[in-house]
Design a protein around this nucleic acid. Sequence first.
DNA 1: CGGGCCTTTGACTGGTTTCAACTTCTGTGG
DNA 2: CCACAGAAGTTGAAACCAGTCAAAGGCCCG
Lengths: 191, 191
Amino acid sequence: MSDSLPKHIRKFITIDDDELTNALTFFRPISLRKKENLLVEGEICKSNYFVVSGCLRMFFVNEKGVEQTVQFALENWWLADYTSFSAQKPAAFSIQAVEKSEVLAIDFAANETLLAQHPCLERYFRLVHQRAHAAAQYRMKYHYDHSREELYHEFARLFPEFVQRIPQYLLASYLGFTPEYLSEIRSRKLS
Amino acid sequence: MSDSLPKHIRKFITIDDDELTNALTFFRPISLRKKENLLVEGEICKSNYFVVSGCLRMFFVNEKGVEQTVQFALENWWLADYTSFSAQKPAAFSIQAVEKSEVLAIDFAANETLLAQHPCLERYFRLVHQRAHAAAQYRMKYHYDHSREELYHEFARLFPEFVQRIPQYLLASYLGFTPEYLSEIRSRKLS
DNA sequence: CGGGCCTTTGACTGGTTTCAACTTCTGTGG
DNA sequence: CCACAGAAGTTGAAACCAGTCAAAGGCCCG
């Protein structure tokens, strides 16, 4: 198993070696090929996923049958449909690997046991969710504050390597517009 | 002090009376008139706020000088600029009372002490942030899935009493469009 | 009773979508 | 290693959703 999760945990809390080692036994490694699914809309989101390497995306299919990407998760990010995971009820989203990926999964029940046995991890997950909450507030601000075209330029400025890494139609989907329009924006910028 | 916070805490965790009573001493009650500010953009978000009664909103001022509301908080919701609160750096948002409100505030330093003395509250805040994170995922879905007009009808269907309670221009701001357009939507529905 | 804020209405504008056709890239099997 | 099929990206024209601006009307609160 990679050591990226223990390293990530220690960025947020202090925890001794024995307890950390034991905690890690609750996680299950999963290897994914490109486009392989971890969760399909309508199923129950059984696990919370930590990305060791690669990239996941969460999406849903809208009324017109088009896939709308709502979130990406790169290395060291957690991802799940938390409404589904928390209540163990059907998910509104699907989760899929954008590229070949390694993730660590923790099931709902294992998660409860883990936190009961190692209460110090409550703090870790509190900080992880608080950070995600903060990020969601900023993300809403970006959407309110910018036109679609500006969203693209902002995103490309903030995450230039990521823009290279993923296909354009996924980026367009994430930013909330059509691949055709993204194509137009890009050609405009070149001239 | 109202008992709404202890009740809320006990919806999420079990905690004995003494510990809960002591924990409550860390919070400071604040009364707000309509339009009174708790936080102004550029200041540091010193506290996390729990709404006992009334309604808060978080907003920023865009390049055109227009206030954009990104979030409301009703009874039993927590609100803060969590980027600013976590790092104690200048806020990107302002927080203001929409109507006469009673809130409980906990300062950054008091929050750290509270959690150190009462680690069981890490779980409470973990669950609160996880719920907020889940809500943010659904909110993004709504924005991707619906036109502006549909957003209004969905919102009015889900929170009819709230639509009555707040002025239209704030609702328009929250849904991401202009008061003029909201007015047009409403007149269309009547005929 | 008055003033200012909120809401409504209408004409015009433009950013973005839709649709369809075409080109380029990618990967998989022969 | 090449060929080919499907996926991804580009281009352009027409349509539309929603914003902007300006002006008038309603309503709350002092």
